[in-house]
Simulated assay, not measured.
Amino acid sequence: MNHRVSPKAGVRRTHAERSAATRQHLIATAIDVIQHRSLEEMSIHELAKSAGMTSGAVQHHFESKAVLMMNVLSELIESTVRSGELWPSPALPARERAAKFVQAVWGLVYAQPRFIVAWNIYLGCRNQPEVLGHIAELRQSVQARMHEGFFTAFPELAAEPDRDGLLGLVLSSLRGLGLLQLFAPAQPSAPDAVHQAQLACLADWIATRCEAAAASAGTPTKVRTRRR
């Protein structure tokens, strides 16, 4: 008689898979410690205690706090990419596109607790060249992704002479709003109406620039047609 073995019973993770899972657990625990306590409290010893491991086991995966912080930053960036779509279809009307983009990038990136975690790491590691070098590389990578995605979603603006300054202003505005969360109440009673008004103004400005660029180039853009 042939005995069939259940697939679940016969599957074992490889050493590499177990190691990767442990690293992800440690990174997630580190993010949680920084978010709910502080960067200063995030030592190898505290991470080991919070993760239910020994300090030696943690150092087997991350030899120092600097190396751990670099991996935490990488995970924060990748989780932002995985969290959802930032870019609306360029076929949508300019104003709908702009509103969708601003709300998506705010909700998925700048309003997220991980955004503040990333800035805590940046501010706390200013005297660690190794971490700062890694941050610079990540910023270049993120900037390239944002540049490509933004001008694909808003092709009217791709040929504008000040396009880099335009994108920089958009991201700086969102970044500034995100950093204001450092001073917000721990448990706000309602969504910040001031933030929403500012986001609406930013979306309106993007849409207006799209419409002006399309009109200047003599190309049609997806805007509502006015009927007389």
Score class of each variant (00 low, 15 high):
P188T: 11
R139D: 13
A184K: 13
P188K: 11
D162C: 01
V142E: 13
G165M: 09
R139L: 09
N127W: 03
A159W: 03
R175D: 14
P129D: 06
V170A: 00
R139N: 14
F151T: 10
F183R: 05
F154A: 01
T152S: 02
L166S: 06
Q143R: 12
L180S: 07
I135C: 08
Q187G: 00
V131C: 10
Q140W: 04
P129M: 04
P161N: 10
P155G: 02
F154V: 02
Q128T: 15
P188F: 10
A136H: 13
G165H: 08
R175V: 00
E137F: 05
F183E: 06
L167P: 09
V170D: 00
S173T: 15
Q140E: 14
A190D: 11
A190Q: 14
L180V: 01
A144N: 10
P155W: 02
E156I: 03
C125D: 07
D162V: 05
P188S: 12
A144S: 14
L180M: 12
Q181K: 14
L182S: 07
E156T: 02
L138D: 04
L179S: 07
S141V: 04
Q187H: 13
R139E: 14
F150H: 08
G176L: 06
Y122L: 10
L180K: 06
R145A: 13
P155E: 03
E160K: 04
E160H: 05
F150Q: 08
Y122W: 03
S189G: 00
N127P: 00
G124H: 10
G124L: 11
P185K: 10
L169Q: 08
F151A: 10
G149R: 01
E137Q: 14
G149C: 04
L174A: 08
A186I: 10
L177P: 05
L123H: 06
A153C: 04
A158G: 05
R126C: 00
Q187Y: 08
R139S: 13
A184Q: 14
Q128W: 02
G133W: 06
F154S: 00
P155S: 04
R126A: 09
E130N: 05
A153N: 03
P129Q: 03
N127D: 15
A153I: 03
Q128F: 00
A184C: 06
A184S: 15
A190W: 04
R163V: 04
A144I: 02
E156A: 07
M146R: 09
R139Q: 14
F150Y: 15
G165K: 05
H147M: 14
F183D: 07
L171Q: 12
A144R: 12
H134F: 14
A144E: 14
I135T: 10
D164Y: 05
A159S: 15
G149F: 01
G149S: 07
L157E: 02
Q128E: 15
A186Y: 02
M146Q: 14
S172W: 03
G124V: 11
F151C: 08
P188Y: 09
M146F: 12
L177R: 08
L180Y: 03
V131Y: 10
V142T: 12
S189E: 15
A136I: 02
D162S: 06
F183M: 11
E137W: 01
I135Q: 13
L157G: 01
D162K: 02
A158N: 09
L166I: 13
L157Q: 03
R163D: 05
V131A: 10
L169W: 05
L138Q: 15
L171A: 06
Q143T: 14
L171V: 15
